[in-house]
Design a protein around this nucleic acid. Sequence first.
DNA 1: TGATCATATAAGCCAGTGGTGATACGTTCT
DNA 2: AGAACGTATCACCACTGGCTTATATGATCA
Lengths: 107, 107
Amino acid sequence: MHALDILGDPVRRRILEVLAAGELPAGAIVDTIAAEFGISQPAVSQHLRVLRDSGFTTVRADGRRRIYAVDPAPLREADEWFDTFRGFWTQRLDALGTELTRGRRDV
Amino acid sequence: MHALDILGDPVRRRILEVLAAGELPAGAIVDTIAAEFGISQPAVSQHLRVLRDSGFTTVRADGRRRIYAVDPAPLREADEWFDTFRGFWTQRLDALGTELTRGRRDV
DNA sequence: TGATCATATAAGCCAGTGGTGATACGTTCT
DNA sequence: AGAACGTATCACCACTGGCTTATATGATCA
């Protein structure tokens, strides 16, 4: 399953956005996501499972809490899919275009 | 509908990859995609419709042919979603948060 | 130990999506 | 004009995926 297949869901994308700011216990994620999307705790938990299983997050136990964090590897893989197309919107003419554009757009 | 929702389909991603090399008539796209995925002409045509409707491609008529080409705008928009996460995999001396997160996980 | 908390799983329902074959539409050729 | 071509649309069907409620699991607290 391609990483972009996993990201083709607004709830999962939002979970990752929330986690981008830092690790969080499942409960905190549920509070945010369930409120924003109007879905239940199990629904969020099932999305967390998909993200776990596909490697987008890591989890560690802390008592009865499960602390989730972003694992960037699959995100990077998904982002690399766009490499083929960056030439369409990159004005750089030098060979380093791709490298420079990625992650250095603020330079 | 978010651009990444459209890209959450392997057939549509492949169509865009094929078009990345240059514009093509629908028939040529059908030949490639139908063969690769074992699907019919209408199936491919319906994916082309989705890509058209969501702005990923432009079309122009050429006699009885329809010439498709990549429109980069939605692709760029989709790619921008990853901006939030690029700090995770780009080495920057000032990205302290990222470094700390990585260190914690690796240790 | 029993109650409570935090989270995950189970089972089932339902809507949406992507597939199919048939067909319509517009263009070109003879 | 009619036939053939290239492509899109239609109507329908099956499957998947995300949701729900109910419940299980494991950890902590009194």
